[in-house]
């Protein structure tokens, strides 16, 4: 079916989320908590847009709003922009020193909020992507703790988690760089847990934790795979392909 986004006619599948349709058509909608791999957070609310149906305007969250009918969408009406500004103001009051939020603040010309007291070192906006990533990996080493204004993301009892394998998926998906993953030569420290890093059989770079390898072997049931870092793995596959078919993989 066809929907109109900011005047542009866009093709959409029934059930497809509005944000995906907009992104495919190069229509920019700001978002922090959306990841194509981990959809459905709907917590930052920046991607709100107006949907017009039978002359009725309603505010919807584009990252989880499924297209079911041919509707008109406005991504940046005065009302939506004003609401987004308030959301950015609130986010900025929470994480005043965060670069990503400051960029957004500048983009939307939101002045630095001065009315509220903020924790200077806070970087987390509680979007929940890290928790979802950990859950999806299959571990649930971190979770949200408490509720309301005291909610936070943590390991159980804030202690180094037994379940954590130090994969760093949480830090990778974090939109504000709030999760510290410190890497020294042969060690990685994340969520207050220090992991030993195993080196790549080919180039010698320390890149993966022992726990990760074990977890993957258990999951995949294989034991004989060589431990190769991302770039060596690519080279390796490339070579294999060439040996087999006489041509290089593209």
């Amino acid at each position: 079916m066809n929907i109109t986004i900011d005047g542009k006619i866009c093709q959409a599948e029934a059930g497809e989320f509005l944000l995906a349709v907009a992104q495919r058509n190069n229509i920019y909608i700001p978002t922090l908590c959306h990841s194509d791999a981990l959809p459905g957070q709907a917590s930052c609310r920046l991607c709100i847009v107006e949907v017009v149906e039978n002359g009725q305007h309603k505010v919807v969250t584009s990252c989880v709003y499924p297209v079911t009918r041919e509707v008109e969408v406005i991504t940046n009406s005065a009302k939506i922009v004003a609401m987004r500004k308030t959301i950015i103001m609130l986010l900025s009051a929470r994480v005043p020193g965060n670069e990503e939020i400051n960029k957004l603040r500048e983009e939307y010309s939101v002045p630095k909020p001065t009315r509220f007291t903020s924790a200077a070192d806070e970087q987390c906006i509680l979007c929940g992507l890290c928790v979802k990533a950990c859950e999806t990996v299959g571990l649930a080493a971190i979770s949200t703790i408490s509720r309301g204004i005291t909610k936070k993301v943590a390991t159980p009892y804030d202690e180094p988690s037994e379940a954590c394998m130090g994969c760093g998926a949480c830090a990778q998906v974090c939109p504000t760089g709030a999760i510290s993953s410190r890497e020294e030569k042969q060690h990685r420290t994340i969520w207050n847990k220090r992991f030993e890093l195993i080196s790549c059989k080919s180039c010698g770079k320390h890149f993966i934790t022992k726990e990760q390898i074990e977890y993957m072997r258990n999951k995949l049931g294989s034991t004989d795979d060589e431990i190769l870092c991302e770039s060596c793995k690519r080279t390796h596959i490339f070579k294999k392909f060439k040996d087999l078919y006489g041509v290089a993989a593209k």
């Binding site: 709907a42 917590s43 930052c44 509680l126 408490s146 509720r147 309301g148 005291t150 909610k151």
Partner: peptide, 11 residues
Amino acid sequence: EESCGKCVPCR
């Protein structure tokens, strides 16, 4: 105190 704390507007 009782908000679930998930979305920015409410929390």
